[in-house]
Simulated assay, not measured.
Amino acid sequence: MNLALWIAAGLLAVVALVGGISKAFIPKEKLAKTAGGGWAADASVGFVKTLGVLELLAAVGLILPAVVGIAPIMVPVTAVCWVLLMAGAITTHVRYRDGAKFVVLTSIYLAIAAFIAWGRFGPESFTG
Rank of each mutant, 00 (worst) to 15 (best):
residue 109 Y to P: 06
residue 4 A to I: 00
residue 105 L to S: 15
residue 45 V to Y: 11
residue 123 P to R: 13
residue 103 V to G: 12
residue 42 D to H: 11
residue 61 G to A: 04
residue 11 L to M: 10
residue 111 A to C: 02
residue 81 C to N: 12
residue 74 M to S: 11
residue 119 G to P: 00
residue 40 A to N: 12
residue 70 I to Q: 10
residue 59 A to H: 00
residue 83 V to C: 13
residue 108 I to Q: 03
residue 54 L to I: 15
residue 101 K to G: 01
residue 90 I to H: 08
residue 44 S to C: 11
residue 28 K to T: 03
residue 105 L to W: 11
residue 38 G to N: 03
residue 18 V to C: 15
residue 79 A to D: 05
residue 48 V to S: 01
residue 46 G to K: 07
residue 49 K to S: 01
residue 94 V to I: 15
residue 20 G to A: 07
residue 30 K to Q: 11
residue 113 A to C: 04
residue 94 V to W: 00
residue 50 T to R: 05
residue 42 D to W: 00
residue 92 T to N: 09
residue 5 L to F: 01
residue 112 I to Q: 00
residue 99 G to A: 12
residue 46 G to H: 08
residue 115 F to A: 08
residue 70 I to S: 03
residue 91 T to I: 10
residue 54 L to H: 13
residue 78 T to S: 15
residue 27 P to H: 04
residue 124 E to Q: 07
residue 117 A to Q: 06
residue 3 L to V: 12
residue 20 G to Y: 02
residue 41 A to V: 09
residue 36 G to A: 02
residue 94 V to L: 12
residue 90 I to P: 10
residue 97 R to E: 12
residue 18 V to H: 14
residue 7 I to D: 05
residue 28 K to F: 03
residue 4 A to V: 02
residue 108 I to A: 06
residue 127 T to W: 03
residue 122 G to A: 12
residue 56 L to I: 12
residue 69 G to I: 06
residue 91 T to A: 14
residue 12 L to Y: 08
residue 4 A to L: 09
residue 6 W to R: 11
residue 112 I to D: 00
residue 121 F to M: 06
residue 84 L to K: 07
residue 120 R to W: 10
residue 74 M to L: 14
residue 4 A to S: 00
residue 20 G to S: 08
residue 19 G to S: 13
residue 28 K to S: 01
residue 107 S to H: 03
residue 70 I to T: 08
residue 79 A to P: 07
residue 57 L to P: 13
residue 95 R to K: 15
residue 1 M to A: 10
residue 54 L to S: 10
residue 102 F to C: 13
residue 4 A to N: 05
residue 78 T to E: 14
residue 32 A to T: 02
residue 67 V to T: 01
residue 120 R to F: 11
residue 76 P to R: 01
residue 52 G to H: 06
residue 11 L to T: 02
residue 39 W to C: 12
residue 34 T to G: 11
residue 73 I to G: 01
residue 96 Y to I: 02
residue 114 A to E: 07
residue 106 T to K: 05
residue 10 G to M: 02
residue 39 W to Y: 03
residue 80 V to C: 07
residue 55 E to S: 06
residue 6 W to M: 04
residue 59 A to T: 06
residue 123 P to T: 08
residue 77 V to I: 15
residue 91 T to S: 15
residue 30 K to W: 06
